[in-house]
Structure formats: structure tokens, C-alpha cells
Amino acid sequence: MQKKWLYLLILACCMTGGIWVACNSINYASASSHNMVSVCLFKAATGLPCPSCGSTKSVVDITRMHFADALYANPIGFIVAILLVILPFWIVADLATHKQSFYNFYNAAELIIRKRWVAISLILLVAANWAWNIYKYTS
């Protein structure tokens, strides 16, 4: 993927994510946590949560320093929160200094994730998280 498209896509994603978290944060303050709007296609189609369902609540909990609640909602929220904070700064810094450190990091990370044992362990982690998510939802 070309550098400029990758940067544009990630900036757009971070902006949408930021607005989404802010909207849900306001909603969270005025209503109970179960009132969050679900946009998950998988949940709408099957009635079961997907591996990353609950990450919005998790990120909102992190912004309020409720780390235990965030972990229970979905551990993926921690990764998303870190990425939401770091990526925009990294990309803007890259664009300002005409470097491509993030692009190089992205390509290197892709190569590492494609290694068989890394891929299998990550898939197992996501599957375990998904099983936990379904268990939390049904119990």
C-alpha cells in the first residue's frame, strides 16, 4: 500500500474513532453503560458478540481510569486506546519532518505478524477473547 493512502486511512480511522469514543463517552455519562449504540454487523446478524465487541466501552472506561472495568469489557480496548493516542501524533510528526518511520514500522510489523507461529498465537488469543466475550454476553 502506498504511504500517503496508508497515512490518510489511519488518520481518518483515528478521527472517526475519536469522535465515536467522545459521543459514547457523553452518552455514558448521561445514561447507563448498557445504552451504548451497537454498530457491530456480526452482532446484528447473529445476536452474538464479535471478538472486538465491548472495545468502545473499554476505551471509554480507560479514559475514566476504570481499568478493571475496561479489562472486563474487552482487553482489546487497551490496544485500541494506545493506538488511538499514539498513531495520530506519530503520523503528523512523520508528515512534518518528511520521514517515513511509521511506514517502515508498519511494513516490518506486517512481516512479523505473517510468521506462522506469531500468526497462530495471535489467532488463538483472539479466539480465546471471543469465547470469553460470548460467555460474558450469554451468562
Binding site: 474513532g17 454498530v39 457491530c40 464479535c50 483472539v126
Partner: peptide, 9 residues
């Protein structure tokens, strides 16, 4: 995967 399919969009 991490973003629920980019909020479905």
C-alpha cells in the same frame, strides 16, 4: 479486526 470491522463501515 480490532475495530469491529471499522465500526461496520
Amino acid at each position: 479486526l480490532l475495530t469491529c470491522g471499522g465500526l461496520g463501515i
